[in-house]
Nucleic acid binder design. Structure first.
Lengths: 192, 192
DNA sequence: CGTCTATTTGAATGTACTCAAAAGCGGTGG
DNA sequence: CCACCGCTTTTGAGTACATTCAAATAGACG
């Protein structure tokens, strides 16, 4: 149970006293996930934000035809979760699971709210986190609306060069919004 | 120059003293926009978050074929801006303009940073704002990845019933990610 | 080794786009 | 007040990008 990666992540944006660190750590929970294990399933109420300490997680939705659509990948050092479900504390529409054996550090939404009151610096930290997330989603939407699949793939490779090597092609296809068959054809120039 | 709508918006999440209100107001700028006038153009560095007091604004990107892709509509009471450009203070990829004569209240990023230090409650306010925005983008992405155009249109009508009446069909088409021609055909069942 | 899943390949299909042109609509100026 | 201009919406034909379904092949893992 090592919080170094998380504390380094926090330290990027705010500076904590030892006491504040200790309090923060006292609120944390750790969960080990086996490959394919769920952190969250559709219909669950998201417990709170989750930080990936090791492994890779992803969030995705399932459409009525049973196809998965990846919303986010989270390698070590990233946060993941179903924000809508977390905010409203309502059953969510996203699944979160592990693509490989992983370790996650997470905090109850109720504890986070306490933390915001006790150590207001964390308001800043999570504000910055959310703002960065907004920027990422905005740019993803721009890509999705204005680029053909092949360029969305190129953009993904450029933005996440280390991820691309670890992910099954199927997962990347889902993230860029095409079927695995079509991505395969694109990469092998079988698209005529 | 009436800040009531903005103050009511702020009051939804945090409670300010009269002094804090006065300080906040002292940092605000007002801009009137004529229909079609830009608040921000591609390549501009976003000044800071903008609150729509009256009218309707939209943000959009322009692809290399010259087609517009609407990222967001902002009726009165909503915030809008190019988050990536604002955070990094780098030239952005989004345009923001007025779909009708509008009035916008905005704050310089540098003043906002000062505000966060002077009145930390605003960290909370903008954290909540950004979190809601993340939730909205997540759900929009889910829709985009997993629903056919006709259902994205239905979803838009359901989610923004009052907006749909005010917007030119062309703008809605762009938001849901189809050409104006195709939306017209969908609505008139000319799609065979 | 066998099983399960991922990837590839092919053919047929479908959803949505492009281009072009006509029709509708709203604002503005003479 | 109405005619005209510019922009939006509609309609049609042809096309392209991406999907579906099916089946073969390849990889990964116990």
């Amino acid at each position: 149970m090592n919080h170094d990666l998380l504390l380094a992540n926090v330290a990027k944006h705010i500076t904590l006293t030892d006491e504040e660190k200790a309090y923060f750590i006292s609120l944390l929970n750790v969960k080990k996930l086996r490959k394919k294990q769920y952190l969250n399933q559709e219909g669950d109420i998201a417990k709170g934000p989750s930080f990936v300490n090791s492994g890779i997680l992803r969030s995705y939705s399932l459409d009525k035809n049973g196809y998965e659509h990846v919303i986010q990948f989270a390698p070590p050092g990233w946060w993941i979760g179903d924000m809508a479900s977390m905010i409203k504390q309502e059953p969510g529409k996203l699944y979160v699971d592990a693509l490989e054996d992983s370790e996650v550090i997470w905090i109850w939404k109720a504890d986070l709210d306490k933390l915001f009151v006790e150590v207001p610096k964390f308001e800043r930290f999570f504000r910055i986190l959310a703002e960065n997330s907004v920027a990422t989603y905005q740019s993803r939407l721009v890509n999705y609306l204005s680029l053909p699949a092949i360029e969305r793939y190129a953009g993904f490779c450029k933005q996440y060069p280390s991820l691309i090597q670890k992910l099954p092609q199927k997962q990347v296809a889902s993230y860029i919004g095409v079927t695995p068959e079509f991505l395969s054809k694109m990469l092998n120039n079988t698209v005529i």
